[in-house]
């Protein structure tokens, strides 16, 4: 049963991150990320209740509070102050190509599983790996700072799914990770307010 729920959750997350590739509007991306985190948090809570594990329940509440509520709200607030960044006009990679690439990443990670991870058991490992690669691809294929930050957060979400397949990290480490992500998002938000995107050819950053 848990197996099936995991597959369901994993593929919904993958489909949502493909949806992110499709979007031009950053606020839609942020909302999609929020939905992803909600699903993840609810799944975690379900798992915790099922196994009567208090620390996982606390973790799920923390996840929902930070990733699903606070971070999206914070990002949307920053984006409302500079509305001209809300839409990314020029994609480095065209949208249909990036959608196809992110699907091919899913297949690639399945192949990766058959080559590298098969001795660690479950074929489900390829789901979090897919999400992680898709997050990394989102970072690489966009020049908008918000989209890049969302890509990083997707990678972190996939980390949660992955830790569910393995033993899971100790509670104190997970709590520390959440704190760190909050820090990254806050600092990233401060930087993004002023950062200009068309600075690729600056001489001082060359070589």
């Amino acid at each position: 049963m848990q197996h099936n729920v995991f597959i369901l959750i994993g593929f919904i997350e993958i489909a949502l991150s493909i949806f992110m590739q499709w979007q031009n509007y950053v606020s839609n991306n942020i909302k999609t990320f929020s939905i992803q985190s909600w699903i993840l948090g609810i799944f975690l809570m379900y798992f915790g209740v099922l196994n009567n594990n208090i620390s996982i329940i606390i973790l799920s509440i923390l996840t929902i509070l930070t990733r699903a509520i606070f971070i999206p709200r914070y990002l949307i607030n920053t984006i409302n102050k500079q509305i001209f960044r809300a839409r990314e006009n020029k994609h480095k990679v065209s949208v249909s190509l990036s959608i196809l690439i992110s699907v091919l990443l899913a297949i690639f990670s399945y192949i990766l599983y058959t080559l590298v991870f098969f001795e660690f058991g479950k074929s489900l490992i390829s789901i979090p790996i897919t999400l992680m690669l898709q997050g990394a691809f989102l970072i690489m294929s966009r020049s908008n700072a918000y989209a890049q930050l969302i890509g990083y957060l997707v990678m972190e979400n996939s980390m949660f799914l992955l830790s569910f397949l393995f033993n899971g990290l100790p509670f104190i480490v997970e709590a520390g990770i959440i704190l760190d992500i909050l820090g990254i998002v806050m600092i990233g938000g401060i930087l993004m307010k002023i950062r200009d995107e068309d600075i690729q050819k600056e001489e001082e950053l060359y070589g």
């Binding site: 970072i139 700072a145 930050l149 930087l191 950053l205």
Partner: peptide, 25 residues
């Protein structure tokens, strides 16, 4: 603007790298 861009690259590349070491952990 260059300093901000450098800071942004620093934060995003290093964070992605550290996600890899988190998987390793």
């Amino acid at each position: 603007f260059t300093a901000l861009e450098a800071a942004w690259r620093y934060i995003i590349i290093v964070s992605v790298g550290l996600v890899i070491s988190l998987i390793a952990t």
